[in-house]
Amino acid sequence: MTLITETRHAIDPATAKTLDTTALRDHFHVGGLFAPGEIRLTYSHYDRLIVGSAAPSGAPLVLDHVAETGTASVLDRREMGILNIGAPGSVTVAGETHTLDKGDVLYVGRGAGALEFGGEGLFYILSAPAHATHPTRLIRPADARRVELGSAETSNERVIIQVLHPEVCDTCQLVMGYTQLATGSVWNTMPAHTHDRRMEAYLYFDMEADARVFHLMGEPSETRHLVMANREVVISPPWSIHAGAGTGAYTFCWAMAGDNVDFTDMDMIAMEDLK
């Protein structure tokens, strides 16, 4: 098997204002995920969140030692959320095998040891430092908290599937779920917001090969954008807005790490303040 890792350092908003498209993508865009037969991880210095993927393609992949964490095993001082966005697959943790269909999430608590990915699943991996141990748990869409928002008239009709959420599953700091836009809707998270106490990451998926999402980022008074293709990730700093519009409907997985697990901890930005 192949394990590929990289590190992304945090930068301040004043520096971000000076970056061109290539530099913005170098800092905040993560591509090349879900390569068959590989585990790919990006270690971010924003709240030490790890984003990555495992694509076993029928041959088992084992995730254990990751040098960037400074521990013998990646979960020695971390928790993890794993979302399957592909065909059925399995994740084995501490001798127990969990079968994940598309849309299922496996929460893995601190100290669980090595993980083995199997089957044909496409596993999106999120991991954050943990101060306590919570039980490993498989969460299916029927177990999640559903919030329906928006309307066809404003092109943002969507359902939010809240999975790693205080009303669904205990975690240390990971908050995670995914949002599905209805056919004909393209806007997400608008009006925009920031949350200075937490960073966030977005994985865009369930997109056609030629579809794109224009992801808005930056300070409210100094916005920028990244053009996102299917199965690509944006690392969103605490000082940045995170919103976007696509060329068609799509799904995105959102995940947060930081001071708290309050999903509603947001600083809303008025439309007239966006520039």
Rank of each mutant, 00 (worst) to 15 (best):
M1E: 12
T2F: 14
I4E: 14
H9E: 15
H9D: 15
H9A: 08
D12G: 02
P13M: 04
P13T: 01
T15Q: 09
A16V: 03
A16G: 03
T18E: 13
L19F: 07
T21Y: 12
T21C: 03
T22H: 08
A23D: 15
R25I: 13
F28R: 05
G31P: 10
F34V: 00
P36R: 12
P36F: 13
E38H: 11
R40A: 08
T42E: 10
H45T: 08
D47T: 07
R48I: 07
R48H: 10
L49C: 05
L49H: 09
G52I: 02
S53Y: 04
A59H: 13
L63S: 02
D64C: 09
V66T: 09
R77N: 07
M80Y: 06
I85L: 04
P88I: 01
G89S: 03
S90K: 02
T97R: 04
H98K: 07
H98P: 02
D101H: 13
K102G: 15
V105S: 04
V105T: 10
L106T: 02
Y107L: 04
V108T: 08
G111F: 11
A114V: 05
L115T: 06
L115H: 07
F117Y: 11
G121V: 01
G121L: 00
F123C: 00
I125L: 08
L126I: 15
L126F: 11
S127Q: 11
P129A: 07
T133Q: 04
H134I: 04
R137D: 01
L138D: 06
A144H: 07
R145W: 09
R146Q: 14
E153H: 12
E153K: 14
T154D: 06
S155T: 13
E157S: 03
I160N: 05
I160F: 04
L164Q: 00
H165I: 09
H165P: 03
P166Y: 10
D170G: 04
T171F: 01
L174H: 10
V175T: 08
V175G: 10
T179W: 00
T183A: 13
S185E: 02
S185D: 02
V186S: 13
V186M: 10
N188G: 11
T194A: 12
H195F: 09
D196R: 14
D196G: 15
R197G: 15
R198K: 06
R198V: 11
M207N: 01
A209G: 04
D210H: 13
R212Y: 14
G218E: 06
E219V: 02
R224M: 15
R224L: 12
V227H: 01
A229L: 05
V234I: 09
W239S: 05
S240C: 00
I241G: 09
Y250F: 07
Y250S: 00
F252Q: 06
C253N: 12
M256S: 04
M268H: 13
I269Q: 00
I269A: 01
A270H: 15
E272G: 03
D273G: 09
L274T: 14
